[in-house]
């Protein structure tokens, strides 16, 4: 790699990092506002216009809070756990493309950090590592509530991860590639001239399983069993305070961002907008509109995440495991077989 390529890679990495980290406060704000509106409340409205500076106040509060480490805690793991949770969420985004390659400085620049040919596997593999941070943190806290939360996180992990993997097999069979860019490219155009050729419509069962599993993957309600504040105080992060807690908090939102982007790539056609190429925009504007479309789709998924959180009550963890193993696992296998039969039949 030459110097320019190196610089471009660094700049892209910084942009992705800054974008993700600056989206988190917006999500925190929107979470509080949305929940307030759903409950006929107002939400934060004192700090800044419409409470927009509330996350900033939260950050200041987190920074000045006392760091507490419980007696008998496993020091290294206790400190490492929040980092182990946040970093995979940020890292997984590296393989997610957010637009068609653009031409800059006389070379082709992909709008993703790493154009890996096994992109989907990379995102899954790295993203799932976040659960280790939760389990480590829970165990290292030397607290029974934390431990129970970590235990649940582990039980949850094995229950949904299989279905999560199975849910995208159908997509991969249709696309024939593990490269996320290829998956998105395959979703360009329309079915019958009006339905967008998104995998949402080609793989509805896969989409359903993936969405539900994504809630479990991000530890969001209705599958926030590891936290379960009514039973477990705060679950795995009961003993965490100050910035260490904030890292767990940010990790949840970073996971949400990554999963939403992945969901958009896999099922919602990524940055493809049907009919956009007929409008005749310039190449630069075309790229901007595409990236905006991607952001809007991912933004809607994020909104959906929060919408569901403030609607559904939490599942019991035996219910989650029943759902994972007895419903979604067979459904996923059936979906793979059905897709295979249909693919063979259409040949």
């Amino acid at each position: 790699m030459d110097l320019l390529g190196f610089v471009i890679a660094i700049v892209k990495a910084l942009i992705v990092l800054v974008l993700m980290l600056s989206t988190i406060p917006i999500l925190v704000w929107s979470e509080r506002k949305l929940s307030a509106w759903m409950q006929d409340r107002v939400g934060p409205n004192r700090v800044g216009p419409a409470g927009l500076l509330q996350p900033l106040a939260d950050v200041v509060k987190f920074l000045f809070k006392e760091e507490v480490m419980p007696q008998g805690a496993e020091k290294w793991l206790f400190v490492a756990a929040p980092v182990l949770t946040l970093v995979p969420a940020l890292l997984a985004f590296a393989a997610i493309p957010i637009g068609d390659p653009i031409h800059l400085f006389g070379r082709e620049v992909t709008l993703q950090l790493a154009n890996v040919n096994v992109g989907i596997l990379f995102v899954f593999a790295v993203g799932s590592l976040g659960a280790y941070g939760i389990v480590f943190g829970a165990w290292a806290s030397n607290n029974k509530f934390s431990l129970l939360g970590g235990l649940r996180a582990a039980a949850q992990l094995v229950s949904y991860e299989v279905s999560l993997g199975l849910s995208i097999v159908g997509v991969l069979m249709l696309t024939g590639s593990l490269r996320l860019g290829d998956v998105v490219d395959a979703q360009a155009g329309t079915f019958f001239g009006f339905v967008p050729r998104w995998n949402l419509f080609a793989q509805p069962i896969g989409f359903l399983i993936f969405t539900v599993a994504a809630f479990a993957e991000t530890n969001r309600a209705p599958f926030d069993l590891a936290e379960a504040e009514q039973e477990l105080v705060a679950g795995y992060h009961t003993e965490y305070s100050s910035m260490k807690f904030a890292l767990f908090f940010m990790a949840e939102y970073a996971h949400m961002i990554t999963v939403s982007a992945l969901l958009t790539c896999l099922f919602l056609g990524g940055w493809k907008v049907p009919g956009l190429e007929h409008i005749g925009l310039g190449p630069f504007l075309f790229g901007v509109v595409q990236t905006l479309a991607f952001a809007m789709k991912a933004g809607f998924v994020l909104f959906f995440f929060q919408w569901v959180r403030w609607t559904l009550p939490r599942f019991r963890y035996d219910q989650l495991m029943t759902l994972g193993w007895k419903v979604f696992f067979p459904l996923g296998v059936a979906n793979v077989m059905l897709t295979g039969v249909l693919l063979l039949g259409s040949r």
């Binding site: 307030a36 509106w37 107002v42 919408w307 609607t311 559904l312």
Partner: peptide, 24 residues
């Protein structure tokens, strides 16, 4: 379950547009 989930989502969505009961 899913139809009921959507029903619930519809209910919470309808609350977006209601007047807040908060007294400042």
């Amino acid at each position: 379950y899913l139809p009921m989930v959507f029903k619930g989502l519809a209910i919470t969505f309808s609350h977006f547009f209601r007047k807040s009961v908060t007294v400042q």
